[in-house]
Design a protein around this nucleic acid. Structure first.
Ligand SMILES: [Mn+2]
Ligand SMILES: [Mn+2]
Ligand SMILES: [Mn+2]
Ligand SMILES: [Mn+2]
Lengths: 221, 221
DNA sequence: AACGTAATTTAGACATGTCTAGAATCGAGC
DNA sequence: GCTCGATTCTAGACATGTCTAAATTACGTT
């Protein structure tokens, strides 16, 4: 249960491990180091403390996993982050490329009560501005694995449901192309050998490379 | 000028010194220690760093003063604190006894841009929910010295303009009595020898002691 | 099976912010 | 002017979180 108050650093490590291990099941030391922009040795030091506090399990040289408690802490932080992002856009006129850094700091200072009030004030959204689902106040979350724009076959249509959210410049570019959650897109052409894709959104068509297409998630139209 | 980013601790020390030295001109080590709930030795240690950074001047054994730069940092923090309090009440349904602790943490995480958006969203209020004036974005603030309810002579009327804001229980009690900024009050009786005061607010009268009366600030009606 | 590179951990250092214990200083009252 | 109690400062310790440099481990390639 634990109403223990963890430091901002501890929370950020747990969130990083949560996000990195979501797909693969476990996270590596240097992945965490890269994500948090710290030295690998700093991660090793922190992991020792996280293990002592029962938040992480660690098989030396083979990766990190969250314990039940660590996962609960991470999910509460993810909820605070995503509600904050949604609130900043819906209530205070932020654009979706401006919210991440602000939320990254506020998430450690906002009480659960404030987060719940913010969520209520904007109608309890299910997803944040980038399409990421928002865990409930009780820590329930289902995060579906979507296909990406790069997975579409020529002629196929789909709806954008989520985009990667860490890079503001990418978000501004995507907005300029109208590649945003809710938009319906069609794959008109795929050049061979990992070549560019021709995508129609609305009345416009855009040619984008596979690396960009891999950062845009889609679902049935 | 300095866009240096100071730690939350440094900001809190500067705010404490600002508030404690506002009237008397300087602040003592143990006053600061009491306000921040730390040991006096911790204040001595922090003061050494604040002096090194040019934020505080210190005459050993005789008190602390903010430098121009220290004062500017403190005023920006005071602005963030008071705008946050006002926003939580005006936009999110907080009561005035719930906002202080939340603002005390958020003030260190909220960007000036967020604070400006919040202030604009609620109509650029001049004062926070407790009647404390809000510094401008450029750090201008005039904080008048008001008389207190305990200074009123029998028969005199005045308007409540501000109350002390650190104690939530006090704030709930004041709200139950309708002793809130904007209320017009009259001093009906003063018992001699520091005795209780009989105060009328609206159609009700209340009898309060001088210590409480000293925590309620009034101005011409 | 041995090698070599990359990932990881350990060792040692440092900055920040806090504490307790004890020394130094101030200032009020005699 | 001296003394004593309160205030303030210093010394030394500790927790947290970070770093660089060096040792260790894992594992794909030869
Ligand atoms: Mn964060
Ligand atoms: Mn997001
Ligand atoms: Mn604070
Ligand atoms: Mn206030």
């Amino acid at each position: 249960m634990s109403t223990a108050a963890y430091t901002a650093s501890v929370e950020d490590y747990l969130k990083a491990i949560y996000e990195l291990s979501r797909d693969s099941g476990s996270a590596g030391t240097s992945e965490v180091a890269a994500r948090l922009a710290v030295a690998p040795a700093s991660v090793s030091a922190m992991v020792r403390r996280l293990v002592e506090h029962g938040l992480v399990s660690h098989e030396p040289y083979h990766g990190l996993r969250l314990t039940k408690e660590g996962r609960a802490v991470a999910l509460q932080l993810v909820r605070r982050h995503r509600v904050l992002e949604a609130y900043l856009v819906a209530a205070l006129g932020y654009t979706w490329d401006q919210v991440h850094d602000e939320a990254e700091r506020l998430e450690h200072a906002a009480s659960p009560a404030l987060i719940n009030r913010m969520a209520a004030a904007i109608g309890e959204p299910a997803v944040d501005p980038h399409g990421a689902p928002i865990p409930t106040a009780h820590g329930k979350l289902e995060e579906p694995k979507y296909r990406t724009l790069g997975d579409l076959t020529a002629g196929e249509s789909a709806q954008i449901v989520r985009v990667e959210d860490k890079d503001p410049e990418l978000l501004r570019y995507l907005a300029s192309l109208r590649f945003m959650p809710g938009a319906t897109v069609s794959c008109l052409r795929r050049e061979p050998y990992e070549g560019p894709l021709t995508i129609r959104v609305g009345s416009k068509t855009h040619v984008i490379g596979p690396p960009l297409a891999a950062r845009i998630f889609v679902d049935e139209a």
